[in-house]
Computed example of a mutant assay.
Amino acid sequence: MSYRSVFQPGLFQDRVYIVTGGGSGIGRCTAHELASLGARVALVGRNPDKVARVREEILDDGGTASAHVCDIREEAAVQATVRAILDQHGRLNGLVNNAGGQFAAPLTGISQKGWETVVRTNLTGGFLMAREAYTQALNKSGGAIVNIVADMWGGMPGMGHSGAARAGMVNFTQTAAVEWAAAGVRVNAVAPGWIASSGMDNYPDHMKSWIRGLADAVPIKRLGTEAEVSAAICFLLSPAAAFISGDCLRVDAAASQGSRIWPLPQARNNTPFNGFHRAVTPRVLSED
């Protein structure tokens, strides 16, 4: 089997894209879709085993990928990693700033260290990756950057550190879109809602019932797929989005648009899209 993308074959032929957090979840899925469309994908992550495994998956499927171990929170490491990718692939056409992470806690339960760790991962690291992609390559050739954020409209109770960082990333997206436009660089963001992704299995046991009930708060009464997010990312990287920059595309089935006060009847006429041939249902959603 191969990835069943909605986009035309060869759309990204011989283009080079960095995907941070490419060892799992949305990053893994996006890397597979880009590779299936002809791109050479540079997988970046902190866990060497994860990025190496995804690289092997892509190679087994006939694609091209390289694996790079990097802590995106460290400036020198980011600079060296982008340089190594350019040395290996000879060019860079874009960046998918997907790496991120957080832990569940109320604001009063977050220490300064915990706050700064999440902000460095979800905001500072994304800034460093985008800045280096721009200064080392994209300012000369043009290209596209897609920053992955989250549904933090209306606040993010229980994960305030992540919500603050993601909101900052949206503002960074808007600023970079203006400052880097003259070089032919577009910068956009994608805000996934509740997506059935491997990251759900990283939360503690006491959150399992809450996670299983998330679909009830979505107007179409289901969770999204990784492939539905990847499709949005690929669109924003593609030539079809040549006049779109500084925007944030919400992939959340309208969950952020007023469902807190509007009654949600049973949904119908709703078919998920899942073109990812290697997708795996999170354990928390398959348990009884």
Rank of each mutant, 00 (worst) to 15 (best):
G21P: 00
M200P: 00
D151Y: 11
V190A: 09
V284Y: 14
V280Q: 15
V146D: 13
L37F: 06
P48G: 03
A76M: 13
L285S: 11
F127K: 03
M207R: 02
I148D: 02
G38M: 10
M200Y: 09
S197I: 11
G109A: 15
P48L: 04
Y203T: 04
I211N: 04
V78R: 12
K140A: 11
G213D: 03
A189D: 07
Q112V: 03
R222S: 11
G101C: 06
S245V: 08
C248S: 08
K113Y: 09
F103A: 05
L11N: 07
V16C: 02
R222E: 09
L86R: 11
A42N: 01
Y17E: 00
I18S: 01
A105Q: 12
A137P: 10
G22K: 01
I148G: 09
R278D: 06
G163Q: 02
A150L: 01
C234I: 13
P9S: 07
Q266K: 12
D247Q: 12
E132D: 13
G142H: 07
F12A: 00
F172L: 12
V6T: 03
G25F: 04
S259I: 06
V19K: 00
A35F: 01
N188Y: 10
D201M: 05
R268N: 09
A167I: 05
S259A: 15
Q136K: 13
R283P: 00
I211W: 05
C234L: 15
P265E: 02
R15N: 03
D151T: 06
S162W: 02
I148L: 15
E56S: 14
Q102G: 04
R260M: 11
M207A: 11
A242V: 04
N97A: 15
L37K: 01
S197Q: 05
A242D: 13
G184N: 08
V146K: 07
A52N: 09
I244N: 08
K208D: 07
L285T: 14
T173V: 13
V118T: 14
K113N: 12
K140V: 04
Q174M: 14
P282L: 12
S230C: 03
V251M: 05
T281Y: 14
A182D: 14
L43Q: 02
R53T: 14
N139I: 02
V96Q: 00
A137E: 10
V41I: 09
F127P: 01
I148C: 07
T81P: 00
D205F: 12
